[in-house]
Amino acid sequence: MQIDAEKPDLPLDAPRNLGPFRLRVDPARAAAYARETGGDGSSVPLSYPALWLMEPALSAPVREICATLDAVPVHEAQSFAYETPLLSGESYDVRVLLRCEATPPRIVIDATISALDGATVARIETTLRLVPRAGLGAAP
């Protein structure tokens, strides 16, 4: 997204490890998400873990940084790489490495999803560009 805005001062803390969090593929939610994205709900969408990133334990640090900087997060990039598919109704352990970049200001969220036996299932990377509210200017 092309946005010209003043750069916020980013807290350049060391990367933060979060988790592991035990999260489940909720069948009803997976089906609803699939339907909202054009699918038929017969399988778990590869992008389903994007919903886990909205869980309070995972989203709170992002909200905290945005609140501190008075910035709006804008989704800049996303990737999903799977070893094995997610199974509806199954639980997984999710570990997150959250880091900040200063130029341009970004939050990068690296998540690793593992089966309960420890086998890696998928890796996910989310990049959020931080756009300061104060630099947004007046409405056109």
Partner: peptide
């Protein structure tokens, strides 16, 4: 405020539609 004529569609909603 960021110069958009309307709110943007969620990127994930669009990306997931490729599946």
């Amino acid at each position: 405020k960021i110069g958009l004529a309307a709110p943007p569609v969620h990127g994930m909603k669009l990306l997931a539609a490729f599946e």
